[in-house]
Design a protein around this nucleic acid. Structure first.
Length: 1032
RNA sequence: GCCGAAGUGGCGGAAUUGGUAGACGCGCUGGAUUCAAAAUCCAGUGGUAGCAAUACCGUGUGGGUUCGAUUCCCACCUUCGGUACCA
């Protein structure tokens, strides 16, 4: 009988669905096991063969654990809020819910085709009001909580209010805004309700704050850092400015230390833990306060300003954070970030113009742009001076964009002798560089070697090393009240507002005083309103500003028409929506009890399932989803809603499956670009005509626009570009994927820059061939005969329009690159079981590897052989050989699954089937357990064979075969006999033979004599059971 | 720059408490079957030399430890991923 995989697979997929084979119960006598995949965003493109990799691995684990007697929870759902659906809505007017539903339907079909053992009865969709009701609920709980840094836990805000009533906030130690005032109980009682709320907002775990964002006025939205390139928006090229906007924030920084510490408790990949550690960025040091020396001119100037600044003028303090407090006597200036609040207040009238110009210039640049341009030193002197806390010396205060507003206090005490950035700044602006290191030359560069530091010229620190000096100076700073030891984190509170339509609405309205108020739990969900258009409003409000029914009636507790807003009982609702990570930060817990309408999940459910035993997903979520989820989980734990502080015990990052793109380059006009040697570092071995990949690594970006412009010029008119132009062409949006470079000159010195090179750029409009349909691209119709483009790698074609080169590149699968391989077609041609096996067989799960459809015939052939093996099954007693093959396989497969080494177990299956076929094994006693072994990997064929073996019920819960050592016990060993470490021949000897007996047996062998050529061996190494090595 | 991962046949990869390098599969070569093809089956397949037995070389490069190194140590090169004026 033929292996009709299509029929078999359909049959069992229907069986599983009809019988709800994989429905998990929230209770069982057996232990629980929770296997989770990172749920997908249902994109319009559907799945490609790379997507299911992790799902297949997790499905194997889930099925294996069922055989092992665990109660397995293996759910799936969709992270269905997101940008693509919204963009599609903007373009077509189609409601995102409609596109999303269609995409989910398509995803579901594709997933079902692959035979996953998901418990679909627990499906969640983040854009479903029944789901996001609970996202909103968590938000409310965060709002109603504060972080007590003494108990180191989140507590209900009501506890804080009662403390305020009794004692004010003097005794309170909490994660709160920097500008929180100190008050007594008496003062608290005198405050109005609104004032009290404003204070409480400074403590809440989610709060409103002015955050600096990339604002694009033309698009009317905030852009993420990676959506801004060279100060303009990636799409449309509109100018982007840095702007402060009121945004919802998450006080994740309250959890920084715990997020760091608890990494030690989870079994996650080290690289992922490292990225989280870096992201949190803990550094130890000290904070120090420098007093600004009052300046009469500034104060005179300020009196003309508003009254607010007047009361604080004259007593400005600059707080800095430093990891090197021991170098405090080396301070020769201070630098503030251009955005620093004090800049305006301390700048002298003479310097005002210069400073304002500099601040304005910096504001125009995006943060990313600033960071990418580290070579240019710029800054301005404020005219103000600060007083050194110890020497009382006058220290000039500068502003410079090398100081970032968002890190530390946005101000640094500059120690040019000990920090290269300060050193460069000092050199550039001719600021003195005092040396405070003993026996160190600082004429060329700063000295930053902590380990070899001996402090000099530093009063009470003289002669001390780094740790001693640090301790001493911190003690001194504390004594004079101008500083203390401090731990600083790079982690910032997360902006939680998005000016988007397709996201969770905040369950928030604003009262008459503009204070945010939460909806009551029972009023949730607050559903997304209908809007006529999905773009920002003309006044620059987020898309929800277009909704006409978007006001909250506190009497009826219903959403009502905006016209009814009276700020008495009807109030405006929040217009922002939540970011993508909101919905994914709790879904793993919601799966435990997904249909609960009373609570987010029942206590029984979460006490039973506790946490995820195995979480599989991509490493791109290392610092986003996984950090935010850990934060939410800790919060839920603190408030008693979750029994575990970490939601996932073990995590595996599956690698990417890469596609092979076919790219045709048209070799266009040559163009001269001067490239600094540094831009091509490491590539000085490039040969004439090499195809050089343009990437971050060599920092040479060439924009389409510039090339097209240049192509229109004749070579003699080409501009002689200098470094400024190079700077300009870096970072431009539309990047070429490849540039074919040809070196013309080796080196030259221009403008004092060493080793510059002229590079002849042959280019180059890469044309991509659709690897699935080479003939489809009109542009390269000339290549129509290249159906087997693989063979044309590197081939050059001379056509009328010019010269073309064909190139293959392995890269991420993407619709855009035309290199996507569709799993549907594979399932059609070879079956889901083949696809599952093949994806596992490709290589280690964690590794990225290229896809090559041709190879699937190997595993498909294996399945056919397996099928054949079962054609004549009998009740015969298995031979010792049969049993050995089987138990060897059981052992290896079991080990492999436990180690997530799926590729090697597929190889083991192949060996097993090859051996059993050779042995002509037909024994049911062998084939029955083999079916179970294979079933997690190739479930359809396993079910079918199981049925053929006479079992009416599904194989899914049949116990895993028990490995028995006794079948593998050997009496002899094929000893490799080596001479000087080189294996020459093998010799079969009894395993129980002792060392000396082995030695004499080997020495007596005729071939030993041959290799010794009459010499007496110096030494004979015998490792019983392993090897014999004769040293001659 | 910093942090991390990795370099093994034509390709994907296997083997690590140091013990027969290249399992398994793809591809390729030859053969069987077929009118032919597909499919299937058999044999071979790291490189060099040789009819062969066999010899030498071989796990990014250079050293080292060891009877023995893909595995351990030192230095370096390359590729990939992340991150970056973090004070």
């Amino acid at each position: 009988m033929k292996y009709k995989f299509r029929e078999i697979e359909k049959k069992w997929q229907n069986y599983w669905a009809t019988n709800q084979t994989f429905k998990a119960e929230n209770h069982a006598k057996t232990p629980k096991y929770y296997v989770l995949d990172m749920f997908p965003y249902p994109s319009g493109a559907g799945l490609h063969v790379g997507h299911p990799l992790g799902y297949i691995a997790s499905d194997i684990c889930a099925r294996y654990k069922r055989h092992k007697g665990f109660n397995v929870l293996h759910p799936m759902g969709y992270d269905s809020f997101g940008l693509p659906a919204e963009q599609y809505a903007i373009q077509t007017g189609q409601h995102p819910a409609i596109t999303t539903a269609a995409n989910i339907k398509r995803y579901r079909e594709q997933l079902d085709e692959l035979g996953f053992s998901f418990d679909w009865s627990r499906e969640v969709q983040t854009s479903d009001p029944k789901y996001y009701r609970w996202t909103q609920w968590v938000f409310i709980q965060l709002f109603n909580s504060w972080y007590n840094t003494i108990s180191d836990t989140a507590e209900p805000i009501s506890t804080l209010e009662s403390i305020f009533e009794k004692n004010g906030n003097i005794e309170v130690s909490a994660a709160c805004d920097e500008d929180t005032p100190v008050f007594t109980a008496l003062a608290w009682k005198d405050l109005t309700q609104a004032e009290k709320q404003r204070i409480l907002l400074k403590y809440r775990l989610t709060y409103l704050a002015e955050a600096e964002v990339n604002w694009c006025p033309a698009l009317g939205t905030v852009l993420a850092n990676d959506e801004v390139i060279n100060g303009v928006s990636e799409r449309g090229g509109h100018p982007v400015i840095r702007k402060k906007m009121t945004q919802w924030m998450m006080r994740i920084t309250a959890y920084a230390q715990r997020l760091l510490d608890d990494l030690a408790t989870v079994d996650w990949p080290q690289p992922l833990k490292d990225s989280q550690t870096n992201w949190i960025g803990r550094s130890e040091g000290a904070s120090a306060i420098f007093n600004v020396i009052p300046n009469a001119d500034v104060e005179a100037h300020e009196t003309t300003g508003n009254a607010d600044t007047l009361e604080t003028s004259g007593s400005h303090k600059i707080a800095v954070f430093t990891t090197r407090p021991d170098t405090i006597f080396g301070v020769s200036f201070m630098t503030l970030a251009p955005e620093h609040d004090l800049v305006d207040k301390i700048t002298t009238p003479e310097q005002k113009a210069v400073v304002n110009a500099y601040v304005a210039a910096t504001a125009k640049r995006s943060e990313r742009d600033r960071l990418s341009d580290v070579k240019t030193i710029s800054g301005a002197f404020t005219g103000a001076y600060a007083e050194h806390p110890f020497t009382k010396a006058r220290i000039p205060i500068w502003i410079g964009d090398y100081v970032l507003a968002g890190y530390g206090t946005g101000a640094v005490m500059a120690v040019p002798c000990g920090d290269q950035r300060d050193y460069d700044f000092a050199k550039h602006f001719d600021i003195p560089i005092p040396n405070i290191f003993k026996g160190v030359d600082i004429t060329e560069e700063a000295f930053a070697d902590k380990a070899n530091t001996v402090i000099a010229n530093s009063d009470f620190l003289n002669g001390l090393d780094y740790p001693k000096a640090t301790r001493k100076v911190i003690a001194e700073l504390e004594r004079i009240g101008q500083g203390k030891g401090k731990i600083n984190y790079r982690l910032r509170d997360a902006v939680f507002s998005r000016q988007r339509y397709w996201g969770e609405p905040f369950p928030v309205y604003y009262d008459a005083e503009g204070i945010p108020r939460m909806l009551a739990d029972q009023d949730l969900p607050l559903e997304l309103p209908e809007v006529k258009k999905y773009l920002p409003t003309e006044t620059g409000e987020p898309p929800l500003g277009n909704a006409t029914t978007w006001a909250w009636d506190t009497n009826t507790r219903k959403v009502v028409d905006n016209t009814r807003i009276d700020h008495k009982t009807v109030f405006p609702l929040e217009l922002n929506t939540m970011p993508g990570w909101a919905g994914s930060s709790q879904y793993f817990n919601r799966y435990m009890d997904p249909h609960n309408q009373e609570v987010i999940y029942s206590k029984e459910a979460i006490d039973y399932w506790e946490d995820v035993d195995l979480y599989i997903g991509g490493s791109e979520h290392a610092t986003g989803h996984l950090l935010y989820s850990r934060f939410w989980q800790k919060f839920m734990y603190d408030r008693g809603w979750a029994p575990k502080t970490e939601f996932a015990r073990k995590l595996i990052n599956q690698g990417m499956i890469l596609g092979t793109s076919a790219i045709v380059y048209r070799v266009g006009i040559t163009l001269y670009i001067k490239v600094g040697y540094s831009e091509l570092s490491g590539r000085n071995t490039t040969q004439l005509g090499d195809i050089l990949k343009v990437s971050k690594k060599n920092n040479l970006y060439v924009s389409k626009g510039i090339l097209q412009e240049a192509i229109n010029l004749k070579s003699e008119n080409l501009p002689h570009w200098g470094f400024d132009q190079i700077q300009e062409i870096e970072n431009l949006g539309e990047l070429f994927e490849r540039v074919i470079l040809k070196y013309e000159l080796t080196s030259e010195e221009i403008d004092g820059v060493m080793s510059e090179k002229y590079v002849l750029v042959y280019n180059v409009t890469p044309i991509r061939l659709d690897v699935n349909n080479v003939n489809s691209s009109d542009e390269i119709i000339s290549f129509a005969d290249m159906t087997n483009w693989n063979e044309h790698e590197g081939a050059e074609f001379l056509l009328e329009e010019g010269k073309y080169i064909v190139h293959r590149e392995v890269e991420k699968m993407s619709k855009r690159w035309l290199n996507v391989v569709n799993p549907d077609q594979i399932c059609e041609d070879y079956g889901a079981d083949s696809l599952r096996l093949y994806e596992m067989f490709l290589g280690p799960l964690e590794q990225s590897k290229p896809w090559n459809t041709a190879g699937i015939t190997g595993v498909h052939g294996f399945l056919k052989k397996l099928w054949k093996l079962y054609q004549t099954v009998d009740e015969s007693t298995p031979t010792a050989e049969n049993l050995k093959t089987l138990h060897k396989t059981i052992k290896k497969v079991e080990e492999d699954i436990e180690n997530f080494s799926f590729n090697t177990s597929v190889a083991t299956f192949m060996i097993c089937v090859n051996e059993l076929t050779a042995q002509k094994c037909a024994s049911k006693a062998i084939l029955e357990p083999l079916t179970i072994l294979v079933s997690p990997y190739a479930p359809h064929i396993a079910e079918e064979l199981w049925e053929k073996l006479g079992h009416p019920e599904s194989i899914a819960y049949v116990p895993f075969p028990q490995f028995e050592e006794k079948y593998l016990v050997e009496s002899t060993k094929e000893y490799p006999i080596s001479f000087n470490g080189k294996m020459r021949f093998t010799l079969e000897l009894p395993l129980d033979m002792d060392k000396s007996a082995i030695e004499s047996a080997v020495m007596a062998h005729e071939r030993t004599a041959k290799y010794l050529e009459g010499r007496t061996p110096k030494k004979v190494i015998v490792v019983p059971g392993k090897i014999v090595n004769i040293v001659g």
